[in-house]
């Protein structure tokens, strides 16, 4: 198991370095420059290029950049959004907010989703089942910003249940609405998968056998059915994480959350290269880490996978 994780870590680091290089080269191909003010003369632009070493040839800039990132963890400075501020400072305040929001939505969504899905499967063809199906269809097809607008208007503005803009002094209270808005999609997807899987598992022969052996219903459900049904659900959490990251762009705008998504969009539109690279890099890192965690979780839930992978890599 440790060998497996170690190997996966090495591959992850190599992947990240490749991603970083590709990002650097791609951004260099973007048209325009970070200095887009109509007032800048060519001389002044030259001066700014020199100041930020952008006048050097590509390969020199590339190696300097990689060296700084790898050995010093220095992702450079912001050119326009927060002039001359190191990107790390820029991200330091926003990263925890984005991560927190992402994790909250993922946890809340996954828990409620599993709950909904299980109840629906156990009470197949009941009213509860129909409700879950309708909810899933809505949750998947309606974009999260529609929920966001609705929540902020009705629960926030109209009845003052929760604040409808983010407040750094009340991070928990003010992140309730964005968390709900973001987790709708998670709940819907997870519930749908959970229901389908559990229905299948409940109808299988080994469950019949377990019941025939005289095991208690609760034990059959928790130990044999839900646990087995969870495997495909966990698989789907990876892609969900990605859509949480991209979905948060709009949510951040609506709730005024100083997170990464909005920063990325702004940075791209003004060519603030270093900011773009570091956020994209962070997203990749987050995604790769999620995948790793999910693969490890497989092993925990299903010992067969653990053994197989271990042999394969051993």
């Amino acid at each position: 198991m440790f060998k497996y994780i170690r190997n996966r870590l090495i591959i992850s680091i190599v992947t990240l370095l490749v991603i970083l290089s590709v990002l650097f080269l791609l951004l260099d191909l973007m048209p325009g420059s970070p200095f887009n003010d109509e007032k800048l003369s060519e001389d002044q632009k030259g001066m700014l290029y020199a100041k930020y070493n952008l006048d050097k040839p590509l390969h020199i800039r590339y190696f300097t950049y990689m060296k700084n990132v790898i050995f010093k963890g220095d992702f450079g400075e912001s050119y326009t959004i927060q002039k001359n501020v190191p990107v790390s400072t820029l991200l330091k305040d926003r990263l925890p907010i984005s991560i927190r929001l992402g994790i909250q939505s993922l946890l809340v969504g996954a828990l409620i989703g599993v709950l909904f899905g299980s109840v629906a499967a156990i009470n197949k063809n009941s009213g509860w089942d129909t409700f879950t199906t309708v909810f899933s269809v809505l949750g998947i097809s309606v974009p999260s910003y529609v929920f966001a607008l609705g929540l902020s208007y009705f629960l926030g503005y109209k009845i003052h249940l929760f604040p409808f803009t983010y407040d750094i002094y009340k991070p928990l209270e003010s992140s309730v609405l964005p968390t709900i808005a973001l987790s709708m999609f998670v709940i819907a997807t997870v519930a749908r998968f959970m229901r389908t899987e559990l229905v299948e598992v409940l109808g299988s022969e080994y469950i019949l056998l377990a019941e025939a052996k005289g095991l208690k219903t609760r034990k059959v459900l928790i130990k044999h059915s839900i646990r087995n049904a969870l495997i495909p659900v966990i698989t789907v959490l990876g892609p969900i994480t990605v859509s949480l990251l991209t979905g948060s762009l709009v949510i951040e705008r609506i709730f005024g959350i100083p997170g990464l998504g909005d920063l990325l969009v702004t940075a791209i539109s003004v060519n603030d290269f270093n900011v773009v690279i570091s956020i994209a890099f962070f997203y990749s890192m987050f995604y790769i880490a999620m995948m790793l965690i999910i693969d490890v979780l497989y092993g925990v839930i299903d010992p067969r996978i653990r053994v197989a992978k271990g042999e394969q890599n051993g």
């Binding site: 709950l115 109840v119 156990i122 219903t217």
Partner: peptide
């Protein structure tokens, strides 16, 4: 079946209660 439903209901209540409790502070 009934018992399992009760457990699930309990879980749901717990999740909601904890989120409201957390909201209360600060």
């Amino acid at each position: 079946m009934k018992k399992s439903f009760r457990i699930l209901a309990l879980l749901l209540v717990l999740v909601l209660a904890s989120s409201i409790a957390l909201v209360g502070c600060g």
